[in-house]
């Protein structure tokens, strides 16, 4: 893919176009972004930074809103656990 970026989502190598949000990468990977307090897996929801459903761990930092963060090469994305 020209102008593409590779990131790690839940241990998988995922290629996304430049300018893709981390939320898009989560969907592309078929992964979840977080587990809810009662243990349900969730994927990004509102897509505009207000619902906080897309919170995920980016490079070790928890609770980042994945729909508001653009992918950078080598980013490590893992599910938010609470």
């Amino acid at each position: 893919m020209p102008d593409s970026i590779v990131v790690w989502v839940a241990g998988k190598n995922v290629e996304v176009p430049k300018g893709a949000t981390v939320a898009a990468a989560v969907f592309v990977a078929g992964a979840f972004c977080r587990t809810s307090p009662s243990g349900q897996p969730r994927t990004p929801f509102c897509g505009m930074g207000i619902c906080f459903e897309c919170r995920t761990v980016i490079n070790g930092e928890p609770h980042r809103r994945s729909c508001q963060v653009l992918c950078e090469p080598g980013m490590v994305i893992t599910p938010d656990e609470c």
Binding site: T21, F27, F45, G47
Partner: peptide, 11 residues
Amino acid sequence: GALHSLIKSGL
């Protein structure tokens, strides 16, 4: 709207 912007951003 989320689907719209996700497709736009590479989904």
